[in-house]
Design a binder for these strands. Structure first.
Length: 284
DNA sequence: CTAGGATCCTGTCAGC
DNA sequence: TGCTGACAGGATCCTA
């Protein structure tokens, strides 16, 4: 998926484009993509959109919250009756093409447009919750702090708890720190020159502190670039998120030169995930 | 409790 | 061309 910066970008887009709109009708094309009764959201007004980790929380006027998790391939695409459209999530042509399509799982008809939830692999979902029960949701409740709020000492203690796991696996664990995904894990570890297979218990306190700071830094850069995927566009002139193109140092850059030392970036496998490193800058 | 691998699902791409 | 296996910006479940 869409990692934290993409979700943040979507949050901002939704707050800009669909706020105060009424959900007139919900069409569910895939049962597992929508959890809970559609009746609880139909007729309600969207009053605000929040984010926690990679999770979107759409607050409605009737004290119901619609939680949206995009997982690997989820997309949120807004088509306005008139004015600006908006799209974010897993980047595919669906951002531009005719909708609904084969991957459209849920359609929310709004007063001023239509919101499509597309998801190729069906891992993502929308879930209906009473607003005052969001914090008790199992996933939300288990999330660690966001990188900007993470206390370095607490993070170091968490590394000790997973001392024998590779550091990349640990920072991908949302219970340790919320929001880091495969792109920013690779980017943050490159930033502090640590090999992703390094056992978490081997990091010094300084390295732990630097890693938290690096995670916040790379995600900040991405949010400022509009996410690593194209995230917003206007009907007339499209602008797209271009973090990967402009800022990524290692992700999807295998075979290319390290921007720091010139060595060739390679792709390896860590914690079951494709992982990009500079073999010179990042030694175990 | 942790660590690691399988699993959910669809689509694409490299290699034969 | 057609087939096969690997893999994918995530998280959970199962096993040891």
């Amino acid at each position: 998926m869409p990692e934290l910066p993409e979700v943040e970008t979507i949050k901002r887009g939704l707050n800009k484009f669909i706020i105060q709109q009424k959900i007139k009708k919900v069409t569910v094309n895939c049962e597992k993509s929508f959890i809970g009764p559609v009746e609880l959201v139909e007729g309600a007004k969207i009053v605000g959109v929040r984010r926690r980790g990679k999770c979107l929380l759409v607050d409605l006027s009737n004290d119901i919250t619609m939680m949206i998790h995009l997982r690997m391939t989820g997309q949120v695409i807004y088509r306005a009756l008139r004015g600006a459209d908006f799209a974010g999530g897993h980047p595919t042509d669906s951002f531009f093409t005719e909708l609904p399509n084969k991957q459209t799982r849920v359609i929310l008809k709004l007063s001023e447009g239509t919101l499509y939830f597309n998801d190729q692999r069906k891992f993502g979902f929308l879930k209906v919750l009473p607003s005052d029960e969001v914090e008790q949701d199992k996933f939300i409740a288990s999330l660690g702090a966001e990188p900007w709020e993470m206390n370095a000492e607490e993070f170091y203690q968490k590394l000790q708890r997973h001392a024998k796991a590779p550091i990349k696996a640990v920072i991908l664990d949302q219970k340790v720190m919320a929001g880091v995904g495969n792109i920013y894990a690779d980017e943050a570890l490159f930033e502090i020159k640590v090999h992703p297979k390094t056992l978490a218990g081997k990091l010094s306190k300084k390295q732990a502190k630097d890693l938290v700071r690096a995670a916040a830094k790379v995600m900040d850069a991405s949010i400022n670039a509009g996410g690593s995927t194209m995230a917003t566009y206007l009907k007339a002139d499209g602008t797209k998120g271009d973090y990967l193109e402009k800022f990524a140092q290692v992700f999807h850059r295998e075979g290319q030169e390290c921007k720091r030392c010139g060595a060739e970036i390679i792709k390896i496998r860590v914690a079951g995930r494709g992982t990009h490193i500079c073999p010179e800058c990042q030694k175990c």
